[in-house]
């Protein structure tokens, strides 16, 4: 039992001088990107007095003649093939509406899920009626982006055994720009926990399942109590991810694992204190630099 009262403190960024240069060209809204008129105006930029200015805070990216600014704090802009974690907000005719932290609700069509039984068939009217028994409002799913519509809305699919409804675990929400794009976004961490790093900034932490029996198509969730040791690891990882995101560190399996190891010296609930965050993120950053160099 503890109560702690403090004064607010300005956030310090744990940076090392060498790292900033490699981070690329960072701009604030209104900063001049270039005065050269030979470039094309992309997302996050605008033209004024023949100068190209940034309209968001982020990193400048150039593809040939096109200049874009990728915002640091943003909603999720979907791309085909991304792994995402989302929450069902509505059950409609032949589709579920899913909140994926993007500007518009995404859709999961009934025809793009694996139904229990596993056989491939046309979806009948009965399937449509039973939609709420598969996924209902509030349920979390992991899925892959199948298509991006012209207005930016996403269509997803769960036609693989690794996707589907999520069971017991913890959801952590961070900015989508902090998720590092990797070959795989599903990891079984050596500390006994699995993690799904959704490209949309939703991270799902859950105890590593022992046996994957996929008879029900992944729609049946296990509601057995999870042992305390697993819970401790999950809570610690959750706080580590929040610590890393507070310091704007890229999130991927290695950085999370290093941060987890750095945090072991502290109590779980203390990890979110400002001084502890600085401490463990510094250590994580150092190990990552050592590993690269």
């Amino acid at each position: 039992m503890a109560v702690e009262v403090r004064l607010p403190v300005a956030r310090k960024r744990v940076t090392e001088s060498g790292l900033l240069d490699s981070a690329g060209h960072l701009v604030c809204p209104g900063d001049t990107i270039t005065t050269d008129t030979g470039f094309m105006r992309g997302h996050g930029t605008y033209l004024e007095d023949e100068k190209l200015l940034a309209s968001v805070a982020g990193v400048v990216e150039r593809v040939n003649k096109l200049i874009c600014v990728r915002a640091l704090k943003t909603r999720y802009n979907g791309e085909v093939g991304d792994v995402i974690v989302g929450r069902v907000t509505e059950v409609q005719q032949k589709r579920w509406k899913v909140d994926t932290n993007s500007r518009l609700d995404s859709v999961l069509l009934l025809s793009s899920v694996n139904l229990p039984g596993g056989e491939l068939r046309r979806r009948s009217a009965e399937d449509e009626l039973a939609m709420r028994s598969y996924l209902e409002e509030g349920d979390l799913i992991s899925a892959e982006v199948q298509a991006v519509y012209s207005d930016g809305a996403l269509s997803m699919h769960t036609r693989s055994l690794k996707y589907g409804k999520l069971g017991q675990g913890v959801l952590v929400q961070v900015s989508p720009s902090l998720i590092k794009r990797r070959k795989t976004h599903f990891h079984n961490l050596p500390c006994g926990t699995s993690i799904i790093l959704g490209n949309n900034g939703f991270i799902w932490l859950y105890p590593t399942p022992e046996q994957t029996e996929e008879e029900a198509g992944g729609f049946v969730t296990n509601l057995e109590p999870i042992p305390l040791s697993d819970r401790e690891v999950i809570s610690r990882l959750r706080n580590c991810i929040l610590a890393l995101s507070a310091q704007k560190m890229l999130l991927y399996d290695t950085s999370i694992l290093y941060c987890y190891e750095a945090s072991l010296a502290h109590q779980i609930k203390d990890i979110l204190k400002v001084e502890v965050i600085e401490d463990i993120v510094m250590e994580t950053r150092q190990r990552l630099v050592d590993q690269e160099g």
Binding site: E4, V5, R6, E232, R238, I268
Partner: peptide, 19 residues
């Protein structure tokens, strides 16, 4: 189990910031 999602016990407060 007296372990909440953010690692607190049942009777712990989050950090309070007063200005």
């Amino acid at each position: 189990d007296d372990l909440r999602v953010d690692g607190r016990g049942c009777e712990d407060y989050r950090c309070i910031e007063v200005e």
